[in-house]
Design a protein around this nucleic acid. Sequence first.
DNA 1: GCTTGACCTTCTAGTTGCTGGAACCCTTAT
DNA 2: ATAAGGGTTCCAGCAACTAGAAGGTCAAGC
Lengths: 131, 131
Amino acid sequence: MNIKSVSLATGLPAKTIRYYEDVGLVRPAREANGYRVFSQSDVHKLAFLARARSLGFPVESCRSLLALYDDQDRASGDVKAIAQKHLKEIDQKLDELTAMRDTLGVLVQSCAGDNRPDCPILSDLAQEVSR
Amino acid sequence: MNIKSVSLATGLPAKTIRYYEDVGLVRPAREANGYRVFSQSDVHKLAFLARARSLGFPVESCRSLLALYDDQDRASGDVKAIAQKHLKEIDQKLDELTAMRDTLGVLVQSCAGDNRPDCPILSDLAQEVSR
DNA sequence: GCTTGACCTTCTAGTTGCTGGAACCCTTAT
DNA sequence: ATAAGGGTTCCAGCAACTAGAAGGTCAAGC
């Protein structure tokens, strides 16, 4: 399988697949002409990566997850630890974003959005007290 | 005021303040020895930036917001448009993260997290159907 | 006068995870 | 012969800083 087919099969851009090879997540073989050849196992790994990335796992965590997947003697606790850490980070991000959303939502609501210069959004940013 | 005092006053790291100068968001004067001198107006701008950044506005939006703040003839509609665009992006991010959180939460729940290799998290990532 | 320590300066490079583009090679069909 | 549609490498850039190196400045204390 060449890179284009793998791209279609996994939904990953060819550039991204090359990048994953660069950072050592996959090691496709090469044809005589230098073209990459992907085995079924390579494709499977890339699909794994695509799924893990879509759940927001950092690339380095993906590397660990892939290693655990390959290791028949793994402990599921190690996998769970990685996932929990990631979950915690997502929750933190969600909290931050929710706080931003709330503040911003109120500000946007309170702004007339017309031709006049008066603007509660700017007043907030400039930390002008009361209105 | 030198950079350290401004850092303390605004909560922005000195490095960040220098970076904001680099990209033209502030233009502090210089003393004879080359040290930056920040006026009250500079400090105010930096506080504005700190607040805007804390609400997640991209630096380029901060630049626009600052320009609008300085412009007495602004239309609040222009400010509101920037804020609404940002709000929309936050909402999108929130949706993505919430979806991740939901999936990941279920997976983490269902993983025993013990010494055995069996792991629904990995099964999901490997797209093995039905656990 | 000299040293120490806390400031300040600039510059380069690294972070994350790709993505765009240039320059060039290979293969097949017309 | 050439054009289309693959493939390759390598370099640069994105956002918004941050770390670190190398070095200048200044006030205080001995």
